[in-house]
Design a protein around this nucleic acid. Sequence first.
DNA 1: CAAACACGCAACCATTTTGTTGCCTGTCAT
DNA 2: ATGACAGGCAACAAAATGGTTGCGTGTTTG
Lengths: 128, 128
Amino acid sequence: MPSKPRNLSSPSSPAGVSGLVRASDTLAGVFAALGDPTRLKLVAVLCAGGAFSIAQLTAGTEISRQAVTKHLQVLSDAGVVRDVKMGRERLWQLEPAQIEEARRMLEAIGREWDVALNKLKMFVESSE
Amino acid sequence: MPSKPRNLSSPSSPAGVSGLVRASDTLAGVFAALGDPTRLKLVAVLCAGGAFSIAQLTAGTEISRQAVTKHLQVLSDAGVVRDVKMGRERLWQLEPAQIEEARRMLEAIGREWDVALNKLKMFVESSE
DNA sequence: CAAACACGCAACCATTTTGTTGCCTGTCAT
DNA sequence: ATGACAGGCAACAAAATGGTTGCGTGTTTG
């Protein structure tokens, strides 16, 4: 097994990892926002395009309108969703930028992992 | 604006979205696990490869060993991380499968969104 | 063997989250 | 104008979360 214990915030960490650590505080909010079944379903509906009212979005759930409003607020705080006022309605739509960021982070993690596996594999092969 | 209110669990939803909804309950747990700065940093460290003891992982944080243990337990419950007993130590390593699943979901959301945008664009252009 | 090390378990606490209900405000249609 | 519709706000209550501390158990190591 490689690597001694390291400080998570150390600036001397490998570039890839330190980049991940730097971004993690912001992105954690996005993941937290997506980390609820109700909210994830809301996002899944919204990603089909268009703008939906709270009443519409509530129709697909078993919770109250206010609960849905709160969930939308959480998503909004994380920048995952955006609202537009239309007369007496408030329409919500997806704001994919943050989701894209989150996806990139997961991609980076997977890539980092693959690189590490490859190094280990090469090390093992070199000592045969 | 298209689409009337729809039930989030409706089997008559468009294939892409319904697929997302079906998977959302499982994946919400993964997102929730990643939705904490401390845990996200732990994952960022673990993705560099290798297996780390709790004491090692605690060294980079400002919280207690037990707190780190709890976080690792959360990650483990979500299937993001795996532990291996080694003598008097318990070593943790990344388990990238679920993260990959989560990444795919974000990718699907983004794609779905792009498709919807394209349809809207084509509709607008066709009426010029 | 005995001390030091790595960790688990359980109790406990403060804060946040998730949901409810009741009531009020603004907007649209008749 | 007036009723119905869409939603906001605030005050709760219950449960989950994130953290601590104290103490016990198994494993090395001198």
